[in-house]
Design a protein around this nucleic acid. Sequence first.
DNA 1: CATAATTTTTAGCTTGTGCTAAAATATATC
DNA 2: GATATATTTTAGCACAAGCTAAAAATTATG
Lengths: 227, 227
Amino acid sequence: MNGVVSEGGSRLSVSTEDYLKAIWAVGRGGSASTKEISEHLSVAPASVTNMLGRLQEMGLVRYERYRGASLTERGYREALRLVRKHRLIETFLLEHLGYSWQEVHEEAERLEHAVSDLFTERLAEYLGHPGRDPHGDPIPAPDGTMERQEARPLAEAAAGERVRISRVDQSSPEVLEYFGERGLVPGRRLRVTETRKLDGVIAVEDEEGNSHTLGAPLARSVFVEAD
Amino acid sequence: MNGVVSEGGSRLSVSTEDYLKAIWAVGRGGSASTKEISEHLSVAPASVTNMLGRLQEMGLVRYERYRGASLTERGYREALRLVRKHRLIETFLLEHLGYSWQEVHEEAERLEHAVSDLFTERLAEYLGHPGRDPHGDPIPAPDGTMERQEARPLAEAAAGERVRISRVDQSSPEVLEYFGERGLVPGRRLRVTETRKLDGVIAVEDEEGNSHTLGAPLARSVFVEAD
DNA sequence: CATAATTTTTAGCTTGTGCTAAAATATATC
DNA sequence: GATATATTTTAGCACAAGCTAAAAATTATG
Ligand SMILES: [Mn+2]
Ligand SMILES: [Mn+2]
Ligand SMILES: [Mn+2]
Ligand SMILES: [Mn+2]
């Protein structure tokens, strides 16, 4: 009886929930290896093996030794519920408590395990039922379904194309800060003015006519849809 | 490494924090017995004995066996930090997420352990730095000081007195609901019209001229100050 | 394909926090 | 003051979740 604030029906522990989210994040539909999970959670590989056994026992993952783990239907549903909470919380922190992009994620990583479903749905209502979080990531619905993402990396766009930023990959804080300052955030409309094969540099122009030049690594973390 | 979301400096576990709050709540300044703590937390007495040893080790309580425990300076500060978080969260849930008085406490009991100090201070700002929560309980300041309560139970008021409700003891949900419906909430001004020694029944009149009659148990859970 | 490197598992241990049953101590009652 | 009752502690155990070191299995390389 640990970490579990016994509250009516079962309730998964914080660790359990973080493992499910890690398998979801790392295994993208398919299966996740011990190593990948271990690195994602900063936990020893042996600890992962141990937990995978337990998660299978609980019916949350399918696991074959030496062969990796994938989420069961139930595990997937739990993972997406977590993701919904995480992204709604991040939206609230940014829009109403004045958090910066850097500060948001760490707080959400803890709060996601503490809020009830009631809290989550009231918060969603309060926020106007947003479909995306401020990074542009889709927020799963309460029933565990999630909008399919059509976006491609800006790096793959062709010169002359008109696109709209749909998501900015939440990599490093510096990158997020940089994009934030120049207004390169989800929803922004751009025209691709130049794509240089040589070094992967891409130039775009925003609606105010400002030009931005992005090196290959940056161009790969901005995802766009045709506009 | 359990329940503790290692996050920069130390951080106490959920259990540790709940014990400190229990000792504070039950020992009201003085010391708390094993039994009292055990009942307050719904935990076996043996578990309390065990934890008190550990809390002393950590310098959070003073404890002599068979003699009860009291908070050290550090323990007291931690307890009040928790209470601040708890009450600010309750205020938010009631005023902005449409929670009822019943629902509020359980959610706050979990969230208080998950929110950072940054969150807490941003929330306080967002709420306009309230000095009381919606029950009328004072909210400790960030530095761990708390306004002294001058209130007496309504049961001890004399006929003819003019008073203001300062606090409603958060006993049962039904009682809270009852008070809520009749507008008997903190801030309300009343005139005591009758006090009957016989059965402890007290009659009051509110500013709109409505009369309310309260039996002894109810009159003991409403706290008032002279107006 | 044999060997080297990498990944994964097993075995055994630790810590935090809970439990029950029995023993010890403190408090109340005759 | 002796004895009964209530409270508290001790002893021994369990379980979740982590760790390290060694063994086993898989994958890569010459
Ligand atoms: Mn995040
Ligand atoms: Mn998390
Ligand atoms: Mn409360
Ligand atoms: Mn709590």
